[in-house]
């Protein structure tokens, strides 16, 4: 599912974050958002997801009527830098939850979650509490969550910031694999290794 941003303006008080920003992000691509800290990478992701609203300009999903604020929650899979999961709940619960909330019967959501966990290599940890997982495993749980929900767009905000090299590479492979599968993956990152894997870049 592509995203079109036209003449987008966004400010925090007097501070201009985006001023006449234009971009077209195509489905099936891994798009990197890079730039110094505080420049507005997370803000851009927030605008795409509908969590934030731009006072000027337009953000469109041409395949869907309306802007991002009309998106179903399952249309966007979020992978955040930290606190991605319900720590006290099982891995399976974490992965099935957004799909279940999105209106899929729980049993079917659980089946989809198990499939997604297998794809990210966490099938054996389905019943483990998320709090007992490593940082890399938690990010893969978040990735599985997006896959289980069949989200056409995945927004990842510094997903590799707290990961070691092996975990970073594993997660980047998963993001790239999702993009190859037709998902639009937008990843805000400082990591040159992640940026190097991207099909397109937005530099702020």
């Amino acid at each position: 599912m592509p995203i079109e941003l036209r003449d987008v303006v966004f400010r925090y008080g007097d501070r201009v974050i985006l001023d006449g920003f234009d971009a077209t992000l195509r489905e099936g691509s891994l798009v990197g958002v890079v730039g110094p800290s505080g420049v507005g990478k997370s803000t851009l992701l927030g605008l795409m997801s509908g969590e934030l609203r731009a006072p000027r300009g337009s953000i469109r999903y041409p395949d869907l009527p309306g802007g991002p604020e009309r998106l179903a929650a399952t249309a966007v899979g979020w992978i955040m830098q930290t606190t991605n999961v319900f720590g006290r709940r099982s891995v399976l619960d974490n992965v099935l939850l957004p799909t279940w909330i999105g209106g899929v019967r729980r049993r079917d959501a659980a089946a989809a979650a198990r499939e997604a966990l297998a794809r990210v290599g966490l099938a054996d940890l389905a019943e483990r509490r998320c709090a007992s997982l490593s940082g890399g495993e938690r990010q893969r749980v978040a990735m599985a969550r997006a896959l289980a929900g069949r989200a056409p767009v995945v927004l990842a905000d510094e997903p590799t910031a707290s990961l070691d090299r092996a975990n970073r590479d594993q997660l980047t492979d998963l993001l790239a694999g999702a993009a190859d599968g037709g998902v639009l993956v937008v990843v805000a990152t400082h990591d040159p290794a992640v940026a190097a894997r991207c099909d397109a870049m937005i530099e702020l």
Binding site: F86, R88, R89, D93, W100, I101, G102, G103, V104, R105, R106, D108, A109, A111, A112, E115, R129, R150
Partner: peptide
């Protein structure tokens, strides 16, 4: 991928979620 049947996340599901949060 498996077929998915729709079922709204209703009041009982909300209650179940609350119970799960307390139980965990």
């Amino acid at each position: 991928m498996s077929e998915r049947r729709r079922a709204p996340f209703g009041p009982l599901d909300l209650a179940r979620e609350g119970v799960a949060n307390v139980a965990t």
